[in-house]
């Protein structure tokens, strides 16, 4: 990819990120931080590519560490966010009933 094209992608993605997060109620700040923490778990894809194309033993070891860490980011991020948001769901339903 050409450098300029990448710069445009970065710029547009940055504006998207700012736009998405603004005007969010304070009660969702922690779940949102957790959710965005999950989303940068996409680093797992890169870690898999790195390990899948590793040749030397050192590359394999570091690649293995990368995949292990990234998988932790993905699964941990999801579980924690899901648990937090699960509560919002149930409390919303309770409120509907009352």
């Amino acid at each position: 990819m050409e450098g300029w094209a990448a710069l445009y992608i970065f710029m547009l993605a940055a504006f998207t990120g700012i736009e998405v997060i603004s005007r969010v109620p304070a009660i969702l700040h922690t779940p949102l931080m957790s959710g965005s923490n999950f989303i940068h778990g996409i680093v797992l894809v890169g870690a898999m590519v790195i390990l899948g194309s590793a040749d030397t033993t050192t590359e394999q070891v570091v690649g293995f560490i990368a995949v292990f860490l990234a998988a932790g980011n993905v699964v941990g991020g999801y579980v924690v966010t899901d648990r937090m948001l699960e509560m919002f769901k149930s409390s919303g339903q309770k409120k509907d009933q009352s």
């Binding site: 700012i18 894809v45 790195i50």
Partner: peptide, 28 residues
């Protein structure tokens, strides 16, 4: 960091998701 490494690996999904989180996280 994920966004930057996405560029290195020529992976737009990493670039976009990484930078979106970078910007959203800074706002937060």
């Amino acid at each position: 960091a994920v966004g930057f490494e996405g560029y290195v690996l020529q992976n737009p999904a990493m670039m976009i998701a990484g930078i979106v989180v970078g910007a959203a996280g800074t706002m937060l």
